[in-house]
Design a protein around this nucleic acid. Structure first.
Lengths: 338, 338
DNA sequence: CTGAAAGCGCTAACAT
DNA sequence: ATGTTAGCGCTTTCAG
């Protein structure tokens, strides 16, 4: 054993140390730690004890390097998106179940998606999961030529890149149908502009209106992803001479801004205006908001994404665009027209 | 070159490939990629070109393994805390400037802090940055015996574990003094119970009141970290016979719930009640909220945390409890009493 | 300035 | 059931 480094901390124990202490070979220790057959119960116990005694834990760096396959799935996520947080959590569960480790790389205003991907690649991840990437499709396709790529939570028109997302068209249609079922006729949609998913949600809304024979009532207002955009749309609604009795907002934050704006103007919700959001975020569940909304099934999204990534990484499995059904969550912000 | 694996993807290029193509030795390529002296400009160019031509990027796994020091800083963060997201972003900047890589490990309802740390340790990180950990101090001290640990954004009473945090006592005092300066006398504090930082903020509030000779007016209401807790406290305030004219809430979310509750009751803000939050979160900046609040300096916290971690990892540098001053951000939710 | 050789700590394929 | 032997792709001496 070499002398301690100047810090006074001991060199971390290696597999060799454990083997020596347990009186076996390194290979045996390796087997025991990977729970593979080929060691007697008695030795397993001895090895475990020796390891515990000297505080050994396998060195992941060496393990990654020596394995034929890295066993790593790279995940690019945005630090500012609460929804990505939920996804990451679900991905841990999903990947663990399938025996893989996650490598996280964050995207932030000061850290580009390119940098995030580059870092992931340097760890030789077997597949990349990109949460709501904003890179152009061409760039994603190029990347997918290097490593299996699964785009999560973004609609993508590509033949080569895999994707897993919620059926936003269906979600928006469901929400619209819910309002129609309540007896609303003048139903407006405050959209998300060119945000991921916005086009799909517009289509779902429009189709539901058309199916109900209300094509003439279709009214799409320019919105966005934030409270501010919702408030602006709310102001527009108030100014309209034939005000809608119900609104489907692009997402919960947008709905919240809208609620705030029309509330200030004295409108009752849902009496004067029924409001539906999208995402089922924490905000939607606040007691005084209690927003009817559309929930994305995070656990299923994560499962499918990991499964698809691994299928591609191992060579079997063809390209797929997986679509997961959303779920309407009815709360008190939507009710029949007065 | 071995045949392609069954996936049809080519084996990633190695340093040896680059060396062969550029007609130099591997060691040279290594130097070039680490920007170390010892190679002529001409060779550098040749190497870079060769690498680019075959799409080489250094294998981080091998690099980590072979270096005497891993050059990794492990970060444990909570996926559900927007503030941790901000910190992570700043940590990327700070660590990059000091030539270190970040290894991220998330904590979530279904993923314990122990698991997160275990994963970080398996990569042989040189130091651990724990963002708002909830582990007991004893556990943290034990961990710190294995690897340098810096606790970020949590107050900690320990002689062996380093910490970097905002001066919450000072922040709360500043906020209280701001309200005092506006002419308020009956100032209440809706606290954070036993949340990290709550005790410090209570003290800051109390001390400011006492310094102003208003010890008799001190009123601490049980609150919490969420909108719900703020709303509950708001209801209590409304019921009080001698209602305060100003409130300092534990954080912005708590303040928001409070605002909502007293707004519903018809109170004007800041006219009937001045409200101050804490954190300067996105919520505080919403136009119709425009909350006076206390900002934590994320960039400085991150810088100090990384610096302290590295100082300890390299052996020099003693234990430290770094305290970063906060900054009061005055908006429209605070004004003089009517 | 350049090249050869020895590991880093583990896994994997083969012996025994 | 256990031990032996090569590497994984890089960094790091130490010679040229």
């Amino acid at each position: 054993m070499p002398p301690d480094p100047p810090t006074g901390r001991v060199r971390p124990a290696t597999m060799q140390d454990v083997a020596a202490r347990a009186g076996v070979s390194r290979a045996l220790v390796s087997l025991v730690f990977r729970d593979l057959p080929g060691a007697s119960e008695a030795t397993r116990l001895r090895v475990r004890e020796a390891a515990a005694a000297i505080g050994y834990s396998p060195d992941q760096r060496a393990r990654l390097l020596s394995r034929r396959t890295s066993g790593l799935i790279g995940v690019q996520f945005g630090v500012e998106h609460p929804f990505h947080g939920e996804l990451v959590e679900a991905l841990y569960t999903a990947s663990e179940r399938q025996g893989y480790e996650l490598a996280l790389s964050a995207v932030a205003p000061s850290r580009s998606e390119d940098r995030a991907v580059e870092s992931l690649l340097s760890y030789r991840c077997e597949a990349l999961l990109l949460l709501g990437p904003t890179q152009p499709t061409a760039a994603l396709e190029r990347l997918a030529g290097t490593v299996p790529v699964v785009v999560v939570a973004r609609q993508l028109r590509s033949r080569s890149v895999d994707s897993v997302r919620t059926d936003d068209r269906h979600g928006a249609a469901q929400a619209t149908e819910h309002l129609l079922g309540l007896g609303h006729v003048r139903i407006a949609h405050v959209d998300g502009g060119d945000a991921p998913g916005a086009a799909e949600r517009r289509r779902g809304y429009r189709q539901a209106m058309e199916r109900a024979g209300l094509a003439a009532e279709v009214q799409v207002l320019r919105g966005g992803l934030t409270e501010e955009s919702g408030a602006a749309a709310g102001a527009q609604l108030l100014a309209a001479h034939s005000r809608p009795t119900a609104v489907l907002a692009f997402n919960d934050r947008c709905a919240l801004g809208l609620l705030q704006r029309v509330g200030t103007a004295g409108l009752a919700v849902p009496g004067d205006l029924a409001v539906v959001g999208y995402d089922d975020s924490r905000l939607a569940r606040l007691p005084w908001v209690d927003l009817t909304t559309v929930r994305q099934d995070v656990a299923v999204l994560a499962d499918r994404a990991v499964a698809q990534a691994l299928a591609r990484a191992t060579g079997d499995g063809a390209r797929a665009a997986v679509v997961v059904p959303p779920q309407l969550v009815v709360r008190t912000s939507s009710g029949p027209p007065r």
